[in-house]
Simulated scan of single mutants.
Amino acid sequence: MDTLADTLQRLREAFGSGRTRPAEFRASQLKGLSRFLKDNKQLLQEALAQDLHKPSFEAEVSELSIAQSEIDLALRSLRAWMKDQPVSRNLATQLDSAFIRKEPYGMVLVISPWNYPLNLTLVPLVGALAAGNCVVLKPSEFSRSTEKVLAEVLPRYLDQVSKLLGRICSLKHFQRLQGLLGCGRVAIGGQSDERDLYIAPTVLVDVRETEPVMQEEIFGPILPIVTVGSLEEALAFIRRREKPLALYAFSNRSQVVRQVLAQTSSGGFCGNDGFMHLTLASLPFGGVGASGMGRYHGRFSFDTFSHHRACLLRRPGLEKVYSLRYPPYSPRNLQLLLLATQDRGCCTLL
């Protein structure tokens, strides 16, 4: 069996050969990913049911359809995304060509969590493939059935430039969540079964800010409730902590939702819902600060996995014009140079 080092070396060589860069190759990978979803829909639904007891309706809405929509958008938009992006020029560069070129990073690693094991694996994978990268996937070790399908079935649909790594079997996550049930007081739920790795949806009340359940991402069916005296106190509570991946504000008063939006910062924000923003490929998904780096969904995935290379191509034969930037310096040359390099958007004719 090849070692990890051998696999990574092959991926580097594959990228270095240039085979992943053409739009045709990228599109073929995306089409293969689409076939994987369509051919194995029932298998994936069964895997999600085994891992999360997720009904087929929810699996379709929150996993399969979102991933398929991302693929369809990438296939429709791929060539437009790959085009050089012209940028504005100043007076000194009017005869030149200035643009941003989206270049693949090379070899990238996608590590996905267990709570949306298909969605949060395939959506960034779409962006990475569309951007022309070689990809190593590391599915969650806690979503065993979904990981098995990804490891055993998905490679049949993709060029083996992409690679999946095995998982680690562990009860650590279940035991961590079980430990959090000791925080505050259980108002609803609290039941658990280690054999099935099941924890009932649980609401905790009388929770203190210093307790473990309030110090880390929960990634489990546990909802701690902290009581505050006012909206201002709630906003202060949010602001003195690390910026969250997402913030959801629920209120019958629109001004309350807008106040929370205006006076906090988070990777994403949703008013009066906790999910539907994920269905929009036009909105980026990602964290800020401690909650994560990068963003994906639609074009944002492509851009996240692309290096934005700054490019300026100057015309030859104009060095005499450009020579005013060289010694001997003079006030006149300085004035001309500052005028020529000024952002044209800032210029006003009086």
Results as ranks from 00 to 15, higher is better:
243 K>V: 02
254 S>N: 15
194 E>T: 07
179 G>L: 03
193 D>R: 05
189 G>D: 00
291 S>Q: 04
224 P>N: 06
290 A>H: 08
211 E>S: 07
198 Y>F: 11
91 L>N: 07
20 T>N: 07
214 M>D: 03
253 R>G: 08
211 E>Y: 08
153 V>K: 13
34 S>M: 12
318 L>V: 10
3 T>G: 10
68 Q>K: 15
161 V>C: 08
211 E>K: 06
179 G>R: 01
41 K>P: 07
27 A>V: 11
206 D>Y: 06
32 G>H: 05
97 S>P: 00
329 Y>A: 13
143 S>I: 02
68 Q>V: 08
5 A>W: 03
341 T>G: 09
200 A>C: 00
204 L>Q: 04
130 A>S: 04
344 R>Y: 10
119 N>P: 00
86 P>H: 11
225 I>M: 01
4 L>I: 15
108 V>L: 05
248 Y>P: 02
332 R>Y: 12
153 V>G: 05
13 E>N: 12
210 T>Q: 15
277 H>Y: 07
246 A>M: 03
283 L>H: 00
18 G>L: 02
108 V>S: 03
195 R>S: 14
222 I>V: 03
13 E>P: 10
345 G>Q: 14
275 F>K: 05
249 A>C: 14
115 N>V: 01
7 T>C: 10
195 R>K: 14
105 Y>N: 02
166 G>Q: 06
175 Q>L: 12
265 S>L: 08
31 K>G: 12
95 L>N: 15
275 F>M: 10
185 R>F: 05
307 H>R: 13
30 L>H: 05
315 R>K: 15
138 K>D: 04
280 L>M: 13
147 E>C: 13
56 S>M: 10
24 E>R: 15
105 Y>L: 14
191 Q>Y: 06
173 H>C: 01
231 L>N: 01
52 L>I: 02
30 L>A: 12
187 A>G: 05
26 R>I: 10
152 E>I: 02
133 N>L: 13
305 F>L: 09
290 A>Q: 14
27 A>G: 11
22 P>E: 08
289 G>H: 10
57 F>E: 04
89 R>D: 04
295 R>M: 02
316 P>W: 10
224 P>I: 09
230 S>K: 03
194 E>G: 03
73 L>S: 03
